[in-house]
Amino acid sequence: MAKLRTRKHKVVLSRSAGGDAGITIMLTLLGAFMVLPMIYVVSQSLKPLDELWMYPPKFLVSRPNLGNYRDLFTLMNDSWVPFSRYVFNTVLTSVGGTFGHLFLASMAAYALAKIKFPGGKFIFKTIQTSLMFHSTVTAITSFIIMSALNMIDTYWAIIIPAWGSTLGLYLMKQFMDTAVPDTVLESARLDGASEIRTYWTIAMPMVKPAWLTLIIYSFQGLWNAGASTYIYSEQLKSINYAISQITAGGIKRQGASAAATVLMMAVPILVFVISQSNIIETMGSSGMKD
């Protein structure tokens, strides 16, 4: 018979102290492995020039200043295409790609989750299969298709493929399966609401956490996108590409490069901090049944 212990009305199993200690040690070690490089990059970005070149190198900065960030902005102002243009490009493709994806994927997810129709299961299975391979496999033939459609070197080459990304649709469909009760939809239909109306006014408001998750996933992908093989024109390229050009200046730009990395990573991390609980809620239904 196991020992039972009550903690705030919950019955919990006895936890051995050795196990607790072991887990704490493992978690601390793994946590250090994860967080130290992140701390290092922040510390590098704050180091003045002489500290960047010091031997032996110090892990943490001793006299932090913002010189590297100033250098980065100077370098940005010197770029041939105005830096604001790169920002505009990334924002436009991120927003266009993300909202198109949200709209198309949620419509399809609603139909696949809540309407039984011939072919629905097959279509979902096919989409689910595409989670199983990485998009590099299709990069070259996608290029051929895009050139046939005259999409190469336009914003569409980034935006339209994002609409059809798979993970967002998958998570949305799984979430709708559990979060939208069939009975609510049935009664709406009985009241004479059309299917499209039911989707928009009843199902969609019930899956807000999934929207947010889908928006964040799609946005992260587009935000972190570097140089695309589908874009040649300098004035259509992304911020990430521009920053990689600045930091490609080699060792003398180490400080500016660290500053750029910190600024670029701050955006997705902040977005995640704000939306964490919603994303975890969506992931609750992410499981695959078969």
């Binding site: 994860m34 967080v35 992140m38 972190n224 990430n240 990573m265 995640f272 964490q276």
Partner: peptide, 13 residues
Amino acid sequence: TLIFYSPSIAGQV
């Protein structure tokens, strides 16, 4: 969660 998840979303860090 944030500590462990960050490296995967932080771009080219």
